[in-house]
């Protein structure tokens, strides 16, 4: 009985480990994509306020952030 219990516990932990392993690409992808947009968007916004060029630097920042986000996402998801 005890051995069965141990087996059951071990299998549960293995399954939990599998869930965690499988969910990691999804969990890691989300913020990689928006991280670039957020950083570059805010940088553009502050530069706009400083230089008085509203809204152009923010738009350029968003676009560059989008490129970077997708590039980083591809690198993270398609790594070997």
């Amino acid at each position: 009985m005890n051995e069965n219990n141990d087996d059951y516990l071990a299998r549960s932990f293995q399954y939990l480990q599998k869930i965690i392993k499988d969910s990691s690409p999804a969990a890691s992808a989300s913020y990689t994509l928006i991280g670039g947009v957020l950083i570059m968007g805010f940088l553009g916004y502050f530069l706009d306020n400083w230089l008085g060029t509203k809204p152009w630097l923010m738009l350029i920042g968003f676009l560059m952030g989008l490129f970077t986000g997708f590039y980083e996402l591809a690198k993270t998801v398609w790594r070997k």
Binding site: Y31, T32, G35, I39, T68, G69, Y71, E72, K75
Partner: peptide, 16 residues
């Protein structure tokens, strides 16, 4: 893109 990416990675770690 790579220079921005260098900062995006820790930023994404922070936010996530």
């Amino acid at each position: 893109i790579e220079i921005i990416g260098m900062f995006v990675r820790p930023f994404a770690l922070t936010m996530r």
